[in-house]
Design a protein around this nucleic acid. Structure first.
Length: 619
RNA sequence: UCCUCGGUAGCUCAAUGGUAGAGCAACCGGCUGUUAACCGGUUGGUUGUAGGUUCGAGUCCUACCCGAGGAGCCA
């Protein structure tokens, strides 16, 4: 990344993407922000970064004290917090650290040479001899030794390690019983020890917990182990036995070792805490930390729980388009997709563009979802969504994932019932699938996380009309920055008062003024409200927004005209109201925001693998 | 986009306008069924960038870049 290349770029990162593609003669569609044309001068080459050579731009402390107040990371933070806790008489942080075994990183920094990969047999522990044949024990030829580090084929010629079935650490620890001959593969979190014995914490990603490997100083593979450092990938074979030490129930007495790839002193993850801001800069390596391992296992559990919920209720998963030519989605500023040349200076001729008209990345699959709901009955979408808004907050991404169920013959009450069942179900799914990860996040980031999740799943969500909400807020005695009055949208501070102070649980607000809601929402008989509903969560704010849809052709058409929307663009949508229209409802759920709530992570950029935000689309 | 705070060693942070330091990491050595292992030693800096004020700038001023928090937009 060339620093000077960053100075003149457009507000959003799309321009760089464009220009670099252009330079490569790539004719694939690219994306830009309407009204923000990029020029080739905006180009900056993609960072020459890969797993082996992490770039570390812009080093320097980024942490604010506020971060540490809630989520300690980093040695300094731990010390400060510990001191503070000592004053408060709470010694728990250090205890939880030890219990959690939270080795984010850990370093080991040795030059890797041929000897590191030299396959030797251990003779100390005595197990596995019967399986070892003399030929397989032979030392590799000198040439093979030099290439050993990246040469699994070498291993396959010499070790039983690669012929056995590998077992996952999660399965071994959950089984909880000793086994004679076990093969595990993973990454070294930390190594410690002496000349007499070495200990390795091995993590294979299957679970938060590490497996402790024990290598006796007399073992033949001890020399290999001595050179292992944090971050190295390895296989270990041996006997799983009850641990002699405290801190774990089982450990692996290692007989054989294969080192797949070392990690030298440049490996950025150290044996100390790192700030979330720093880890964001090395997003290609952060999944190797406890925190991000937990977050992304939970991300999977949440996605699976969502599919499971809908599948079990007979909903069909519909893949709505990512590229759209309807500029009528109305949910926000869109990224434009085009193959037109950028730097011509002439007004764009969209008739000559790839799709023959302006095209964009979708901001919502709802309208298309409605088409399928009015055919298959109950459907949902689950896919990426793009908003080209210059939002710089811990709750916004330019690329995020959204779930949008749409149901024929559901009224607003049905819709609210489904939303509540849905949220409780997917949270419960995560709690049952990832108890270890949630316990870790609870200890480390948000002490009341598990209580909060439990509270949500066990409480009945409050349901109030918008008018009632305004009344409650007016009587609250609170002084809000934005005074409330009927007709104004609820501000963040209002939502938080309702969920965190007044009700202390999730709140569904429904029947909003029609002026502040979208055109497709069903008008109520009072003439001034629509059948909209928002599910508000403590801390997060709006988790779900939905409505019963306007199914009456005349009402919908006149609303479109009233708002000055391009009626011609909606003909395919209006056809559903012309032919066999039916009452139907749906809602949208931000996947990352849900995950934020479940993990307790304060910043949405830490619950998506590679966050895209204004000015930032690395990796 | 607006407001506020910040950017000093690999990381986390110190440093009245006057010789840039510490802890951790790394490296060398020692010791230990260890577990954020421990003990001793060593190395490590264009103080975000560019200007300016000053005898002298990490510190003061201006612009820009980057990060965080709050707001708006929203999911």
């Amino acid at each position: 990344m060339q620093p000077e290349g960053r100075s003149d770029r457009p507000v959003l990162g799309a321009g760089r993407h464009l220009a670099s593609q252009h330079r490569l003669g790539d004719s694939r569609p690219y994306v830009r922000v309407p009204g923000g044309p990029a020029t080739p001068g905006d180009a900056a080459p993609a960072p020459a970064t890969h797993a082996g050579e992490p770039s570390r731009p812009g080093m320097g402390g980024k942490a604010g004290l506020a971060l540490y107040r809630d989520r300690p990371q980093g040695a300094g933070g731990h010390r400060r917090r510990s001191r503070r806790r000592d004053r408060l008489g709470d010694p728990s942080p250090m205890r939880s650290l030890r219990r959690g075994g939270w080795t984010h990183c850990l370093h080991l920094g040795r030059e890797e040479d041929g000897s590191l990969g030299c396959q030797r047999q251990q003779g100390g522990a005595g197990q596995g001899d019967g399986e070892r044949r003399r030929g397989r024990l032979a030392a590799p030829a000198a040439g093979a030794r030099r290439a050993i580090a990246g040469s699994p084929s070498q291993d396959s010629r010499n070790l039983a390690v690669t012929t056995m079935k590998r077992q996952k650490i999660k399965a071994l620890l959950e089984a909880g019983r000793p086994q004679d001959d076990v093969l595990v593969k993973g990454w070294v979190r930390t190594r410690r020890g002496s000349k007499k014995v070495a200990f390795i914490e091995l993590n294979d990603g299957s679970t938060l917990d590490n497996l402790q490997l024990v290598v006796d100083g007399e073992a033949a593979c001890f020399a290999q182990v001595e050179k292992l450092s944090t971050g190295a990938a390895m296989a270990a074979r041996g006997r799983l036995v009850p641990s002699q030490g405290r801190g774990q129930t089982l450990e692996l007495q290692v007989a054989e070792v294969v080192v797949y790839g070392g990690a030298d002193e440049k490996y950025p993850l150290q044996k100390k805490g790192h700030s979330l801001e720093f880890l964001r800069e090395i997003a290609h390596l952060r999944p190797r930390t406890n925190t991000f391992g937990a977050v992304f296992r939970l991300r999977h559990a949440l996605a699976y729980g969502i599919h499971k919920f809908f599948h079990e209720r007979g909903f069909y998963y519909v893949h709505t388009p990512i590229i759209t030519t309807s500029d009528c989605e109305g949910a926000g500023q869109m990224f434009q997709v085009t193959t037109l040349p950028l730097a011509s200076g002439a007004p764009p001729d969209f008739a000559a563009d790839f799709f023959g008209k302006p095209a964009y990345l979708t901001v919502s699959g709802q309208l298309e979802g409605e088409l399928f709901a009015l055919a298959l009955g109950e459907i949902y979408t689950f896919g990426p969504t793009f908003r080209a808004e210059n939002s710089n907050t811990p709750r916004h991404l330019a690329e995020f994932w959204m779930i949008e169920p749409e149901m024929a013959f559901y009224d607003l009450d049905d819709n609210m019932d489904l939303a509540e069942d849905f949220l409780k179900s997917i949270i419960l799914h995560c709690m049952s699938e990832c108890p270890r990860d949630l316990a870790f996040l609870n200890d480390r980031y948000q002490k009341d996380l598990l209580d909060t999740l439990k509270n949500v799943t066990e409480s009945r969500f409050a349901r109030i009309t918008y008018s009632e909400a305004i009344e409650i807020l007016g009587k609250s005695g609170e002084t809000f920055e934005f005074p409330t009055h009927w007709g104004a949208d609820l501000q963040t501070e209002h939502e938080r008062y309702l969920t965190e102070k007044h009700f202390r649980r999730p709140v569904i607000v429904y029947n909003y003024p029609k002026a502040i809601k979208a055109f497709y929402m069903r008008q109520n008989d009072d003439g001034r409200t629509v059948a909209a509903m928002d599910v508000l969560f403590p801390r997060i704010g709006e988790m779900i927004g939905g409505s019963q849809r306007e199914e009456r052709l005349e009402v919908l058409s006149s609303r479109i005209r009233e708002l000055g929307l391009p009626e011609a663009s909606y003909q395919w949508y209006l056809d559903t109201r012309r032919f066999g229209t039916a009452p139907h409802s749906g809602f949208g759920l931000g996947f990352e925001r849900t995950l934020q709530f479940i993990t307790g992570m304060g910043n949405i950029r830490d619950v998506i693998p590679f966050p895209r935000t204004p000015g930032s689309a690395e990796f």
